[in-house]
Design a protein around this nucleic acid. Structure first.
Lengths: 101, 101
DNA sequence: TGCAAATTTAGGTAATTTCCTAAATACCTA
DNA sequence: TAGGTATTTAGGAAATTACCTAAATTTGCA
């Protein structure tokens, strides 16, 4: 893990928000958008962009940044790309800070 | 704690390095510079700047950024400002990531 | 008092990040 | 194959960050 890349992926309020929203999707996204939600897949790009109040391209890049840093996991299904949290990587980050930083 | 401010204080390779150097000063700074080192005080600005290979003003601002974010503690003594790690705040960050992020 | 050493503040240029719109691509379905 | 929806890629303007040098400030001491 390249710590700086992970930290940079987190160093923006919108990206931090996204990570928190994905922790409890039903608390943050309209139920109709989560009609076929599964914890396995997560939430699609356009739903996240709407919640963030930002353009889809911007959020698409944010999500890709976070999945490159391993904080999120992307799954393409049909024409949608779903993103969910990578809980293991988030805990590894915490552990890395505890042990190494 | 404002998570974003702490993360931004960490989102630069030099600042990350400084935090690591201060973990074990004797492993990273010349012994003569640490002649009157105490864990209580830490290391002074110009020694850190020399180690970083950057100008003193730049490093001075970096150190202030990190102490504002509470990651470092500054102590002024005579004409020197010494910086040491704030271990408690670093552990709080790890805990915050574990519990809240 | 007045110089010397350490640090901080100011001010500027270059690089990076933010976030947009337009265009390109992927994948569905008729 | 054509057309529609979702996403990604490209390209660019504005804001922020990275760092420098010069100047100002703080503190000690002859």
């Amino acid at each position: 893990m390249k710590l700086l890349d992970v930290i940079k992926a987190l160093s923006n309020q919108t990206r931090l928000n996204i990570l928190e929203w994905l922790k409890e999707p039903f608390a943050h996204f309209p139920a109709e958008e989560l009609a076929d939600y599964t914890p396995d897949l997560g939430v699609c790009v356009s739903d996240i962009a709407k919640k963030a109040g930002m353009s889809i391209p911007t959020v698409s890049v944010y999500l890709k940044t976070m999945s490159t840093a391993n904080l999120l996991t992307a799954t393409r299904k049909d024409q949608w790309t779903y993103y969910k949290r990578n809980e293991q990587a988030i805990q590894e980050l915490a552990k890395h800070i505890t042990d190494k930083l």
